[in-house]
Design a protein around this nucleic acid. Structure first.
Lengths: 180, 180
DNA sequence: TAATTCATGTAAATCGTTACATGATTAT
DNA sequence: ATAATCATGTAACGATTTACATGAATTA
């Protein structure tokens, strides 16, 4: 279960309350990497605190509690990040669709591929816009790394886009050959 | 929950028993797209049968039962494949790590990035070998599509590899600038 | 003062994994 | 005969989601 590590990582960048963590999951993090709602975040914070990996370092208005990562928490996070990436849960719907394309007839497969080409083009454009809004010089601090993640996304979307175009050509080429 | 659609898709390509489906998830499908063990597959097959999306079309030795997709099942599968891809569960550990890179100090970040560059190079090479073993001409039937999925994987790994090299340069460039 | 946002929680239901369990058939 | 593989299942536990619930502080 990686929710604990997601929380640890976010708190390592900057101490936050459960509410603020919940907001973080509503942005690109939840969109591209890991989803979580407040009903799983609050209990998980309590568990992390029990294990001594985080602690409440500040209490604010409306009963808000700001959590920080303890030294043990940092150690745990670091080893999860750098350890031999043991097989985590693989659950990727878009890729599953790729594997199941063979269950569609060729006409439907082309419709699907055209949709993918369109979607990836849109997403890539959106991410490029996001990057353009970030100052040109990469800041030295934690913010600079958002740049790395965005660039990662752009390259990924572009690769899938190019693949979809290639796949469409390949399938159409086959169909033409058959008809001839 | 996409397990039902994964099963539907696999059975649409070719009728199989629960045991054979379990084997399918042990290959590239489970490695890259969707994981499932027999303890979730058997109950799910029963549910699909209850809903009339699959049916037992053959019984073999050792109590094995071969399932096929019904017409309703085909309809359901097709709309899942082509429908506006509503947001499925996003749960991607590698991408989560990308987002949390900012929680590491620069030296650790470089270690992580080097590991990624190495890993993606290896995976890409493996997949290229797999493709080379497939006959040069793409077969017309379902088998031909394995080619598409493999090409998808290769391009994805190459993109991440290039990104990691770029990220390493970017981070090192920053460090150098700072020191100068 | 009414609506919105901030801020946290619990309970029930669903889903998934691990461990447990059984027996038939085939290969050595 | 023994081991390996084929073939299916259940039970307990843990994680996740949806629905329910409350109240403080801020904004209009």
């Amino acid at each position: 279960m990686s929710l604990s590590h997601a929380l640890l990582g976010l708190l390592a960048v900057e101490p936050r309350s459960g509410y603020e963590l919940t907001q973080a999951f509503k942005g690109d993090l939840g969109r591209y990497a890991w989803q979580a709602g407040h009903t799983s975040i609050y209990p998980e914070l309590a568990k992390l605190a029990d294990r001594g990996l985080v602690e409440v370092t500040e209490e604010g208005p409306r009963g808000s509690r700001t959590y920080s990562v303890t030294p043990q928490g940092h150690t745990e996070l670091r080893s999860w990040m750098l350890d031999p990436p043991r097989r985590g849960t693989v659950r990727n719907e878009p890729v599953l669709r790729m594997f199941l394309i063979s269950a569609l007839d060729p006409a439907d497969a082309l419709v699907l591929l055209h949709g993918i080409a369109e979607h990836t083009a849109t997403e890539s454009t959106n991410l490029r816009r996001t990057v353009r809004d970030i100052p040109a010089t990469i800041p030295a601090g934690p913010e600079g790394f958002g740049h790395l993640a965005a660039e990662y996304g752009i390259r990924q979307f572009d690769a899938v886009h190019d693949w979809a175009l290639w796949a469409i050509e390949t399938l159409q080429g086959q169909a033409d050959t058959k008809q001839a």
